[in-house]
Computed example of a mutant assay.
Amino acid sequence: MNDAWPIAIARGWHPVAYEKELRPGRPLGVRLMGTPIALFRTGAGPAALIDRCPHRNVPLSGGKVCGDALACPYHGWVFDASGRCLAVPGARDETGARATCVAVTRRHGLIWANLADEPLPFPDLPAEIADPALDGFWRPLAPRMARPLDALENHLDPMHPHFLHRHLVRGADSEVIARTIPI
């Protein structure tokens, strides 16, 4: 686990990809709190390993999905969803090498990951997220560099987006002027 983050954030579940980005046969490389992760689809759902082969430190996200396992692009070592090495081309026996497994789950169109050694159960999300009667969309935002407390403070400041991020909340053609009402 990354000691540079407050414990509640470091041990938390974080969305790392849209479920539709996880395609059969191809791993997806993502980053969570600076940690590279290789996501891949198995018959049981999404799986994730730290994006480094234990053999030559090559990104596993450049490899290919073989059934329910991920093959390294460099020498073809094959790892299952738990990180266990299943095959080493040209060798009769497994090496005992292990890739590092990352806890992942799929909820509401997103893939969520947790870097903790012993992840807490996935939390209950607000029922509105899964309500089909409500508009459901995920707006992709480019990653930003900010301290967690600064990011949280920005979320608690409802007026600044209208001035600083003019097109984030509404499109340019639907701008609404806020007026004060005398009391």
Rank of each mutant, 00 (worst) to 15 (best):
N2C: 00
A4L: 04
P6L: 06
P6R: 06
W13G: 02
W13Y: 03
A17T: 00
K20I: 13
L22F: 05
R23D: 09
P24M: 12
R26D: 08
P27M: 06
P27D: 08
L28H: 01
G34L: 01
G34R: 00
A38Y: 00
L39E: 01
L39G: 01
L39R: 02
R41T: 12
T42K: 07
A44L: 05
G45I: 07
G45D: 04
A47H: 09
A47G: 04
A48V: 00
L49N: 06
D51W: 09
D51Y: 04
C53W: 07
C53L: 03
C53E: 04
P54N: 06
H55C: 07
G62E: 11
K64T: 14
C66T: 13
G67M: 05
D68Q: 06
A71G: 05
A71E: 12
C72P: 03
C72W: 10
P73V: 12
W77S: 02
W77D: 03
F79R: 11
S82T: 12
G83H: 09
G83A: 08
C85M: 10
V88I: 04
R92D: 08
D93P: 13
D93R: 14
E94V: 15
T95E: 10
T95C: 10
A97T: 03
A97L: 08
A97C: 09
A97I: 02
R98E: 07
A99Y: 09
T100N: 11
T100P: 02
V102H: 01
V102C: 00
V104G: 02
T105M: 01
H108Q: 07
L110Y: 06
I111S: 03
W112L: 01
N114G: 01
L115T: 00
L115C: 00
L115H: 00
D117V: 10
D117L: 11
L120R: 14
L120E: 15
L120N: 14
P121R: 00
F122I: 05
F122P: 08
P123S: 03
P123F: 00
D124Y: 03
D124E: 12
D124M: 04
L125C: 01
L125Y: 02
L125M: 02
P126A: 04
A127N: 06
E128I: 09
I129R: 13
D131F: 05
D131M: 03
P132M: 12
A133D: 12
F137Y: 13
W138F: 06
A142R: 14
A142V: 10
P143L: 01
R144W: 07
M145C: 13
M145W: 13
D150G: 02
A151R: 12
L152G: 02
L152V: 08
L152T: 06
L152P: 03
E153G: 08
P161N: 10
P161F: 12
H162Q: 07
H162Y: 14
L164S: 09
H165Q: 06
R170Q: 14
G171K: 12
G171P: 10
A172T: 10
D173W: 11
S174L: 15
S174Q: 15
I177S: 15
A178P: 03
R179V: 09
R179M: 07
T180M: 11
